[in-house]
Amino acid sequence: MQFENLSFGYRGKPAIFKQFSWAVPAGRTVLLGPNGTGKSTLLNLAAGVLKPKAGTIQANAKRDVGWMPQNVLAINRLTVHEQVAYAGWLKGLSQAAAWEQAQVALAAVDLTERADDLSKNLSGGQLRRVGLAQTIIHQPSIILLDEPTVGLDPTQRQRFRTILASLPNNHTMLVSTHQVDDLAELFDTVVVLYQGQIRFQGSIEEFLAHAPNASPRPAEAAYAYFIGGDH
């Protein structure tokens, strides 16, 4: 996935991206940045939910992209299984395939037991896992996760990260977060986005190298190095 000379801004507000160009690296990438810096906007643009005012986004077809929004919402009166299957159908799977693949996806996020419950009865953490199941049901080659752990308690966040780590590593994954402790070992690349520009891109080791020696929280220290007082 590649962004070329991308420009975008919300109506009546200053542009977030101006002539933004970036190639999403293969493997698993975490996109760090403070709130309001354009992470969600970039993922929405990548997913096709937003349209750029200028520039292009080279990506596979929509059915090859899996996008999990920041707020995963339940569809009224649908069970977990139905909601995930419906997401699969929307992504182009046949009805039968979507129904079958929903079971596989729910097993992957450890929600098989809740499959027949109404999705609106799930907790926030479980709903986020439903969102992940919706994202991966059609086995996309690009997975976009927008702040997947925001609002979850530490236990739920750890569980979500464990599930994420258990997914097969055969696709491009871009995960946005402003929580530096999400920076687990499962990512190949760290990208820092700040004010619509890429401030850093490299491996976790390269990222952590920017933290002062003997820092008790090296990830946060490295993050602060790139975004300064906004952290």
Binding site: K62, V65, L73, I75, R77, L90
Partner: peptide
Amino acid sequence: ARLRKAKWWHSAHAR
């Protein structure tokens, strides 16, 4: 309305 409320309508779908 239920698709809209769950923000599914304005999402990017293959269909």
